[in-house]
Design a protein around this nucleic acid. Sequence first.
DNA 1: CTGAAAGCGCTTACAG
DNA 2: CTGAAAGCGCTTACAG
Lengths: 339, 339
Amino acid sequence: MTNPTIVEVARLAGVSITTVSRCLNAPDKVGKKTLAKVRKVIHDINFSPNVLAQSFRRGRTNIILVVVHEIGSWLFADILEGIRAVVDGRYSIILTESRPDVTENGTFIDMLVARQVEGVILLCSPLPFSRKLIELAKSKPLPIVIGLEPVSDDLGQFPSVHIDNHQAAYDATQYLIRLGHVEILFVSGPKNSYVTKDRELGFIAAMRDAGLGMDGDRVIHSDLSANGGINSAIEILARPTRPSAIFCANDDVAMGVMSVAAKRGLRVPEDLSVMGFDDTRYAALTNPALSTVLQPARDIGVKAAQKLLQAIERPDDDAPRTEILPHRIVVRDSTALRR
Amino acid sequence: MTNPTIVEVARLAGVSITTVSRCLNAPDKVGKKTLAKVRKVIHDINFSPNVLAQSFRRGRTNIILVVVHEIGSWLFADILEGIRAVVDGRYSIILTESRPDVTENGTFIDMLVARQVEGVILLCSPLPFSRKLIELAKSKPLPIVIGLEPVSDDLGQFPSVHIDNHQAAYDATQYLIRLGHVEILFVSGPKNSYVTKDRELGFIAAMRDAGLGMDGDRVIHSDLSANGGINSAIEILARPTRPSAIFCANDDVAMGVMSVAAKRGLRVPEDLSVMGFDDTRYAALTNPALSTVLQPARDIGVKAAQKLLQAIERPDDDAPRTEILPHRIVVRDSTALRR
DNA sequence: CTGAAAGCGCTTACAG
DNA sequence: CTGAAAGCGCTTACAG
């Protein structure tokens, strides 16, 4: 029982395969009666074109690749939702994580070349990986859009969509300062991360502008996971002086910090204000509910997907390269006036 | 600048395209010197075969489809990690959510047929969707493996991998009963969900076996989201008598319940014990840390992927149909002796 | 508006 | 061990 092909359809409808093909791809170029006849046959024998043959012939796969840091975070899930809303029905999405064990072994890059994805949305661009991608883009044109992250110099050629991370961190820090906090620490991300570097600089700038010195280690680096938050908190609480506020580079880190605080009997926000970043779905559920900085995740996905489709389908249009989306400070219960 | 093809390689190496093809696919059937010569050319001109042509010719895509309820839950992320570990380098994964707006519009099923995915791992099987899938599997052979969920009668023909949800819920309920709780409620999932139905029955069985009546509405249905947990908790706390323990069908619901408890000034576990299900990554981070039932998520992914690959690659082998993985009660700080 | 024909880049019997 | 040739199922100039 082999699938019917357009040859079979043509035979049954008494037309040429060219006409059948046209009925599928450009029905307005076919006579009404012919179209009806062919469509009836297609329906009767439940024909659907072999997409493999179409892809091959057209040289197009209708697949895009989305690179995330880690599947399973709501931030990425929400961005993906936005991407999907834009590309749905036109492109399939293959998702990959940028963790070294996924990308380093080479099979991944091979697949990129091989599978002929038509474009890439990079929601994170760790260095060895992004370099490979850039090389790839040199040898064959590969539309790439950066989302979520600010663009490193290497990637400056590509369009991007993100918030002003520097300003957002500045605003959040300023908010804490206005609550009277002086001893504020920032739990940042990995040292090679461009996003958290921006946030770090925003934090530092706000501190400086408020006349608060940056004596001691006010910036702690973490891996942006809850565990990273836990480790950072343990390190912080082992110091001779305790900060009155900790600003975390994302919500997961903040949750880790709060869980340590709870275990040590520190009350949040009475003894310690904790601020997150991202406003993921769990932020409102923590106890106390987490104050944080909202990133418009779904919008980032939507805009990134739009830019990518434009780059794929109208490569000559000069698209605006960078788009900055608004952020917002979300005040909940984990931050309060300094006691 | 068009990509080189095997014709070009053959020309440069002075062999036939057949030989080039063999060098790629069955190198042991080629003479040593020829192989070396061809490989040198391939390397020199940086040739890589057109995968679109290969797929077309072979009639294989090397793509599998994974259907999840919602991207962005750690449960699914961990399962996916397991799947990926098994299929990596051999198959690409296309991920889709089973939410009605994604699956109902038909384009999704079309894509399923069209994209010629080679197999499906169903991590959730909501009814209208699974029915379509089953019909599809009738008209053309489509390997399907069910993971996470127990198998409904419709899907009984397919292999599956999951825990014994009935027993797991029974165990968790018994644990709460042994803590002295009598007024225990179960916040279940949607009424059409097979997984949570099993857990519901396990809960009821444990209550019965302990001689605790099932008077009143001891089972509340939710959508398995944190918001669902919030709504259920609000409903529960509006009742004339307050339970001393709430067992939730997943961790998200439990987090919702705990957040309401916190807002109402109810202390967990002193005033109310809360138990979750899944042991997702956030379970250990809640305040207090959540007692829950562990599902071996990564293992579920690994086993499901292994079963699928077997079904794809050795369709005649009679694979064991159902595999039950072990669960485990994880006791943390959200459950305590009844006061 | 319609059709005959070439061709996309591979793989795979078949023959030697 | 190697090659000539057919063919996978489409799309697309080209001609009428």
